[in-house]
């Protein structure tokens, strides 16, 4: 099913989505990858604060290429998500409802998604130029010293993704390949 969704991704909407839904996301999302996740959670432990409002937030696992003059952003496809598995459960617990990335997640992440009602979207890995066209605004809001790994606040329009794992734990990576296995 094709679904247009808006961020912040409220829990009701997140819970309605099903694995296999093709979505177009519009609204604000945040980039964060390995180093930013690690720092965010260390800081949270120390101060109880995060660099952006995590409630109903969608985090895009991405480290974009630098923008050329006159462009909003450089290539900006997803990075492999399992490296964030160590951090994602805590953020979901704190209110994050959506993750965009590529590749498999571990059981702990899936269990936490089921418990709190979060959803995991896949964007096409290696299609960074195409995906950059859907990013209309980009601003570094934290950890500038991390370079490509800084946290960016993005405004995306009709950003194409697919629901890989839904809040019931249905998982396309488990259900689809067996249909084509010979």
């Amino acid at each position: 099913m094709k679904v247009k969704i808006e961020t912040p991704l409220v829990l009701e909407q997140a819970k309605k989505l099903r694995a296999g839904d093709i979505v177009e996301i519009t609204g604000t999302i945040y980039t964060a990858r390995d180093a930013a996740h690690k720092r965010m959670l260390t800081e949270y432990e120390e101060t109880g604060k995060l660099p952006f409002d995590i409630k109903n937030a969608v985090i895009y696992y991405a480290g974009p290429a630098p923008e050329k003059p006159g462009m909003v952003i450089g290539s900006a496809g997803p990075t492999t998500s399992y490296r964030m598995d160590a951090y994602a459960p805590k953020l979901i617990e704190l209110g994050q409802t959506g993750m965009i990335g590529k590749g498999a997640r571990n059981q702990q992440v899936v269990d936490t998604m089921k418990k709190y009602g979060a959803v995991y979207f896949g964007a096409t890995g290696g299609a960074g130029a195409l995906l950059a066209n859907h990013i209309k605004k980009s601003e570094v809001i934290a950890y500038e010293d991390l370079g490509a790994e800084a946290i960016r606040k993005l405004y995306v329009k009709d950003f194409p993704a697919i629901v890989i794992i839904d809040s019931l734990g249905n998982n396309l990576y488990e259900t689809e390949p067996p249909k084509y296995r010979q």
Partner: peptide
């Protein structure tokens, strides 16, 4: 199809095919 479209955009705009360069 997305992958070849992406490659076409990258070539046209001379930007990286993938952000992981």
């Amino acid at each position: 199809c997305q992958l070849t479209k992406n490659a076409d955009i990258a070539k046209r705009d001379y930007m990286p095919i993938c952000q992981d360069t």
